[in-house]
Design a protein around this nucleic acid. Structure first.
Lengths: 130, 130
DNA sequence: TCTGTATTCAACCAATCAGTTGTGTAGAGG
DNA sequence: CCTCTACACAACTGATTGGTTGAATACAGA
């Protein structure tokens, strides 16, 4: 279980890191409309083809794209499944935060609470990070 | 519109980059359960408090957290809204890719199509990146 | 006022990253 | 066979990043 979680953690890092670059997001956006080769993908940018190839390698390492050998060209294919990994993570904590925000007692605590003797009731006591 | 889009693009980059780090994701996970101070947040890690402060700065720049001045401590608060920015982007292209995958003619095209004279109809012709 | 606590700022360092250019390799076509 | 095309690999460079330590700032309490 720990190993699985660690691997997932690592892939999550790679997915987010991959999508942190505007060029790579643009590549993903274009690949969502259909597979394409490196040369086709690199055409719109003024960076070198090798640079785009590197970007695709990053996306590939994150599991966001796959390559298929087809003659001498290697079309890039978007793997939509991996997106859910990130979405699930995001939604999980967004929902948690919003739930907490919705609870009135917590809201009131944030508004009225500021006792120097009792610093922060909600967080310090429990910790259940990863 | 272009400026707005550019800003959004930039924030999206920052959000994804912020979440690409496991420590920062862990911080977010813990902040989802409630606000906390830097000292509290840094406790579980064996890195310095200053390092955690830096991480929070990154999260803050991405708009994922906010700080409120409260005496000499500055509790960190998770901003759940920004999560949707990322989620919307992810879902947009995941859905696009899956729609395309579901259409049978496209699937067939991928299987039977491989004409060297006509490289790739779907992508090269149009571009609507940023 | 002096002290302790909470936090940031600044300078530094090693590692990673995005880009480059140059070279190598695999397959299709003359 | 030779050449073009499509791509990957390797080495280099400048910028960014995650970490450190040391000092500065802000405020609460004795």
């Amino acid at each position: 279980m720990t190993i699985v979680a660690a691997v997932a953690e690592d892939q999550l890092s790679q997915v987010f890191a991959a999508l942190a670059d505007p060029v790579r997001r643009d590549l993903v956006a274009r690949l969502a409309d259909g597979d394409a080769t490196v040369t086709e993908l690199s055409a719109p940018y003024d960076i070198s083809l090798q640079a785009v190839s590197k970007h695709l390698k990053v996306l590939g390492a994150a599991g966001l794209v796959s390559r298929t050998k087809e003659a001498q060209r290697r079309p890039v294919h978007l793997e939509a499944d991996v997106f859910q990994l990130a979405t699930v993570w995001l939604e999980r904590y967004r929902r948690r935060a919003e739930e907490r925000y919705a609870r009135l007692d917590d809201v009131l605590a944030e508004l009225t609470d500021a006792p120097p003797t009792d610093p922060a009731p909600p967080t310090t006591t429990e910790k259940e990070s990863s």
